[in-house]
């Protein structure tokens, strides 16, 4: 039987965070980029909760709850931005969202 120590939780959170970064870098679908961002927030929450359990203090869980509240607020603003961008461009490809790009560079 494999001994589950707290490093296992940390290792799982690090792997999930890297999967989120890989998703943000490699995909072009705006929804999948959003889900990768949420994945990174979730992995940070896992680290916070496991450290809170390890040190026997409630602070980590409270910070994790605040991260969840911020993630909910972020979800609302992000999705409404996607809705208004989709009305403008009729696309969910991030390469089409280049209204602020200066012409002539790249």
């Amino acid at each position: 039987m494999i001994e589950v120590s707290f490093m296992s939780y940390i290792l799982l959170a690090i792997i999930l965070f890297s999967i989120g970064i890989v998703g943000v870098i490699s995909r072009k679908n705006i929804f999948i980029i959003y889900m990768s961002l949420e994945l990174m927030l979730n992995s940070i929450n896992l680290i916070l909760v496991s450290l809170s359990r390890y040190f026997g203090s409630m602070d980590g869980q409270i910070i994790a709850m605040m991260v969840m509240a911020i993630a909910a607020a972020e979800a609302v603003v992000f999705l409404s931005l996607i809705v208004s961008l989709y009305r403008l461009k009729h696309s969910i490809n991030i390469d089409d969202y280049n209204s602020l790009k200066q012409k002539g560079i790249l």
């Binding site: 929804f31 889900m35 909760v49 809170s52 359990r53 969840m68 999705l79």
Partner: peptide, 26 residues
């Protein structure tokens, strides 16, 4: 995993807020 780490309230919040609200909104 939160439930496994004794965070029973966060277990509930995770299911209600993430699976219930954020993904439903998405």
């Amino acid at each position: 995993l939160y439930a496994l780490l004794n965070a029973t309230f966060l277990f509930m919040v995770q299911i209600i807020v993430y699976a219930g609200a954020i993904i439903a909104l998405l």
